[in-house]
């Protein structure tokens, strides 16, 4: 691709986007920063507290536990969703009516409002009236996601896999489609094994889309709120209380704006750091 021309007037083309996003991002963000240094008793009356909330949040068991659960959750779903998505994309048909059928059916979970996803899995997994709960209990397993932490965890993870693996499938499939037929023919002539084709042609061509998939899944799963909130309400106990759920509990449930704001900013800094690392790696791959 030809080099880009230097043109500072291009700022005019970007201006509407900057204005819209800045309005939605900067004003609330500044407000959150302001909240995080103050104590409030409602009615817009605030008292300056310095770094009190930051110290409190950083030192609290509750925050560490929520962060730990969040990291465990995000890691688990990435480990399941990425390979599963790639496997399904590899096995998908390349032409004919099958392509449309697969694409439409697979994209369906992505288009369901998140609270409906939670409600759907709730009634699907309930041990007394749900298909999954009934079936598992029928097999003699002690499964009850409302009471048992292990069941709750497994249900939340399976729900997320159900919900989002299709995004990985779509992206990986797009990457596969961009491989010219000639590559496969050349590989055939060389007598390459299926594994070699996967390793050297398919995987290397999918690298870019897979980085995007990991980045998107990482960012979105790190701020997951609605689905587990509707499914388990963060319970039983606090076992499925992820960062966002805890945040809303503090901010709206207890109306502790200061600690909630401080926690949001710490949370945001962590996501920013990890995403920047991913992004830099992605851009480096692209330059090669």
């Amino acid at each position: 691709m030809a080099a880009k021309t230097a043109n500072h007037k291009a700022w005019w083309l970007v201006a509407p986007v900057v204005a819209l996003v800045a309005f939605n991002a900067l004003i609330p963000m500044m407000t959150v920063v302001n909240y995080s240094f103050q104590e409030t008793f409602g009615d817009n009356v605030f008292f300056f507290e310095g770094f009190k909330w930051y110290e409190q949040v950083l030192g609290s068991e509750r925050f560490h536990a929520a962060l730990g659960r969040q990291l465990a959750f995000t890691f688990t779903i990435l480990v399941i969703e990425i390979p599963l998505g790639v496997a399904v994309a590899l096995a998908m048909p390349r032409k004919g009516i099958g392509v449309s059928v697969c694409l439409v059916l697979m994209a369906l979970p992505l288009l369901i409002p998140w609270n409906v996803v939670g409600a759907m899995w709730n009634i699907f997994a309930l041990p007394d009236i749900g298909l999954l709960g009934r079936a598992l209990n029928g097999l003699g397993l002690a499964y009850d996601f409302t009471q048992d932490p292990t069941s709750a965890w497994i249900t939340t993870i399976v729900m997320d896999v159900w919900h989002w693996t299709s995004l990985v499938v779509l992206l990986a499939y797009a990457g596969l489609r961009s491989i010219p037929e000639a590559y496969y023919q050349a590989a055939k002539i060389d007598g390459a094994s299926a594994w070699a084709i996967f390793r050297h042609i398919q995987l290397s061509k999918m690298k870019r889309v897979l980085t995007i998939a990991v980045l998107l899944r990482f960012m979105d799963s790190f701020m997951i709120y609605t689905e587990p909130f509707v499914l388990t309400g963060g319970g039983p106990g606090n076992t499925t209380t992820f960062l966002s759920i805890d945040l809303v509990k503090i901010a709206l449930g207890q109306f502790d704006l200061g600690p909630a704001a401080a926690m949001s900013l710490i949370y945001f800094l962590i996501v920013l750091l990890l995403s920047w690392v991913f992004y830099s790696l992605m851009m480096r791959n692209e330059e090669r």
Partner: peptide, 8 residues
């Protein structure tokens, strides 16, 4: 990347 919960 900003969690919507932060902004509500």
């Amino acid at each position: 990347m900003a969690p919507p919960a932060v902004f509500a």
